[in-house]
Amino acid sequence: MRSKIRGTDIVVSIIIYLILIINTIVVVYPLLWNVFTSFKTNTEILENPWYLPKGLNLINYINAFTKAKIGYYSVNSVLVTVLSIIILLFLSVSSSYVLGRYKFRLNNLINNIYMCGIFIQSIFIVIPLYLMMSSLNMDDNRFWISVVYAVLQLPFSIYLLTSYMKTIPREYEDSAMIDGCGHLGTLIKIIVPLAKPGIITITIFGFFSFWNEFPLALTLLSSEEKKTLPIGLANLMEIQRYATDWGALFAGLVIVLVPTVVIYSLTQRKLTSGMQMGGIKG
């Protein structure tokens, strides 16, 4: 640190903080606006958008829960998200370990196949996927949609985790093998704990993508009692569309936001440090 503080430095840091604060406002204000609006009555919503709500008008939230059964959908969302994460971890940890640390003939080929998989977005294949699944009676099923979620997240997760696995020093395994751990034992007892930051990273990425997923859920889940939150939100929009209940729509948006915010604030340190340790070092 320099001891002398020059005038230009002060100006520069003022400008820098100004930029940071402006960007903070740009990011946060729309979200705050959403929260405020969710407490407004429909008449208030149509007034000046900058006004704060006149009171804590909870009717919008009540509508969101009663008319659109948001509570119902939340349970499904949690179920599908948790199931998808479990499947994803099982598949990606085993695959990445072998792909990252074993030399065998098809290794490169399989790696390349998964690399290509990163380019296949769910939206490209959703129609044939639906056709196939309905012919196998897999559609409208929370277990199978979790499998699909996990598999679609697989290429990216394997990509991250494989390069993370490569950074773990060989010695750990060698000594484990000498100690008589089998391949599986080594993976579970030695590698998984060492790869924890990488595993946490893919879990968190998985969470956000599963929690927010929309197009597949809409296509693959048709029963009301199986739908997830984003679909519930769409239902709210549908009601908004016809009953012009903007308040309930904003309330619904907030209801979807809250768990995301909570999970994010709980995990953001792990998330960002996970990204740091993970395979995106290039």
């Binding site: 085993s94 072998v98 065998f104 490209f124 044939p128 196939m132 598999v151 679609l152 394997i158 391949h183």
Partner: peptide, 27 residues
């Protein structure tokens, strides 16, 4: 070792083929 490799690789690969590769080919 090979059994272990297969055990680790195959479930993912099979599901990946069924849910991504097959629909992609259909596209």
């Amino acid at each position: 070792r090979n059994v272990f490799i297969a055990f680790c690789i195959l479930p993912s690969l099979l599901l990946f083929s069924l849910f991504i590769v097959y629909p992609a080919i259909n596209v």
